[in-house]
Simulated assay, not measured.
Amino acid sequence: MPTPASRAAVHVLTGSYTPDTGGEGTGLATLRLDPSTGGLSYDDEVPPLPVSGASFLAAHPTLDVVYSTNETDPGAVSAVSRRHDGVLAPLGSPADSGGTNPCHLTVHPDGNWLLTAHYGSEKAPGSVAVHRLDTDGSLLEPADLVVHDGSGPVIGRQEGSHAHQILVDPAGRFVLATDLGADAVFTYRLDPRAGTLERTAVNRLRAGSGPRHLAFAPDGERVFSADELSSTLTCHRYDAATGTLTAVATVPATTALDVVNQPGGIVASPCGRYVWLTNRGADTVAAFDVSGAIPEPVGETPSGGGRPRGLAYAAGHLLVANQHSGTVVALRVLDDGRLQASGPGVSVSSVVCALVL
């Protein structure tokens, strides 16, 4: 750990908030990572593509198509095609996402469905939606919308539900949706023909924890939650037969005690031994050894900017999207899971996510 990286450049797509969504970014921009040095640079051959409120990105499993949230009220989702030379182009018009402030999306492994999580607003609860995809990856009609319920004890953040992530478990059997407002992870089955969601379980997590994102270990037997409101990391056992979670251990997300901290992105290592998460407030990326029952902190590294949010693994590096400083940096992963500042980063205004292509 890590496995030897190819010296070929790695292409990375970033998403940022645009002026109409409170940011200063252009939407989508393409970068190159040099795995040998950790240096990042703009891909000058691929111009940025304006996409409103591109706060999260997901790739189609078999097509050169990427999907972006348009984190607006009402919300939308966009499909973007990538030509053979990497140039980006809209694939049809943005589609109504069915809810408010979509903040996360994923494509089902069968390539037929786009799943979207809506954070919601003061007036609209969080929800999850399904869109059918055409054979070329373009967005077709909505197939389902499920509104979440629930609340939590944190005033100002948990008066109602706020779906924050939607993902498919490693076996492809269940769809999981974290809800920061309800302190819950909702489990669904997706009907592969109709595209409808059937709720099969509600996993209640610690009150006030505010689960934001999950990351599965490669074995599919454990899943880790970045708990935004309690500034913690929780390890859960995952029952692949029922789609249910059982909390095993919770540890602090950062050693910094003098700041208000909110974990953001979370990634599990390909080998399954380490988990990393961003700390917004401490402005660090924390590394944990999760080979035992209790996650053990092994290091905490400056994120290279302010308010680190998105996190992605690529060729022995972690790519960190620092929202407030508008920078993307690469941190080299060492053999013991710790991180080390690597090559020069790049400026990407209001950047919040990165997708390795």
Rank of each mutant, 00 (worst) to 15 (best):
Pro2Ala: 13
Pro4Ile: 06
Ala8His: 13
His11Ile: 09
Thr14Phe: 00
Thr18Trp: 03
Thr18Ile: 05
Gly23Arg: 04
Gly27Asn: 08
Ala29Asp: 11
Leu31Lys: 05
Leu31Arg: 04
Gly38Leu: 01
Gly39Arg: 14
Gly39Pro: 02
Glu45Asp: 15
Pro47Gly: 06
Pro48Cys: 05
Pro50Glu: 12
Pro50Asn: 05
Ser52Met: 12
His60Tyr: 05
Pro61Ile: 10
Pro61Tyr: 12
Thr62Asn: 08
Leu63His: 13
Asn70Thr: 09
Asn70Glu: 15
Pro74Asn: 09
Ser78Asn: 05
Ala79Arg: 05
Ser81His: 12
Ser81Ala: 15
His84Leu: 13
His84Arg: 15
Gly92Val: 06
Gly92Pro: 01
Pro94Gln: 10
Ala95Trp: 02
Gly98Arg: 10
Thr100Met: 01
Asn101Phe: 06
Pro102Ile: 06
His104Tyr: 15
His104Pro: 02
Thr106Cys: 10
Val107Asn: 01
Asn112Gly: 11
Trp113Glu: 00
Trp113Pro: 00
Trp113Tyr: 07
Thr116Lys: 02
Val130Phe: 00
His131Ser: 07
Asp136Lys: 14
Leu139Asp: 04
Leu140Pro: 00
Asp144Arg: 03
Val147Ile: 14
Ser151Asn: 11
Gly152Lys: 10
Ile155Cys: 00
Gly156Tyr: 01
Glu159Gln: 13
His164Arg: 05
Gln165Ala: 11
Leu167Arg: 02
Leu167Lys: 03
Val168Ala: 00
Gly172Pro: 01
Phe174Ala: 04
Thr178Leu: 02
Leu180Val: 06
Gly181Ala: 05
Tyr188Gln: 10
Asp191Ala: 08
Pro192Cys: 06
Ala194Leu: 14
Gly195Thr: 05
Leu197Glu: 08
Arg199Val: 09
Arg199Phe: 04
Arg199Gly: 05
Ala207Leu: 12
Ala207Asp: 15
Ser209Gly: 14
Pro211Ser: 08
Ala215Phe: 04
Pro218Trp: 07
Pro218Ile: 07
Asp219Thr: 14
Asp219His: 12
Arg222Lys: 14
Asp227Ile: 10
Ser230Ala: 15
Thr232Arg: 14
Leu233Lys: 14
Thr234Cys: 12
Thr234Ile: 08
Arg237Ile: 07
Ala240Gly: 13
Thr242Trp: 07
Thr242Ile: 05
Leu245Asn: 13
Thr246Arg: 15
Ala247Ser: 15
Ala249Cys: 11
Val251Met: 09
Val251Trp: 03
Ala256Trp: 04
Val260Gly: 10
Asn261Phe: 03
Asn261Ala: 09
Gln262Tyr: 15
Ser269His: 08
Pro270His: 12
Thr278Leu: 03
Arg280Thr: 03
Gly281Asp: 04
Thr284Phe: 00
Val285Ser: 05
Ala286Ser: 15
Ala286Trp: 02
Phe288Arg: 08
Asp289Tyr: 00
Ser291Gln: 08
Ser291Met: 00
Ala293Ile: 07
Glu296Ala: 14
Val298Ala: 02
Val298Ile: 14
Pro302Arg: 11
Gly310Phe: 07
Ala314Leu: 08
Leu319His: 13
Val320Glu: 07
Asn322Tyr: 08
His324Gln: 15
Ser325Asp: 12
Thr327Asn: 10
Val329Gly: 10
Asp335Trp: 06
Gly345Arg: 11
Ser349Gly: 09
Ser350Arg: 10
Val351Leu: 04
Ala354Arg: 12
Leu355Gln: 13
Leu355Glu: 07
Val356Gly: 11
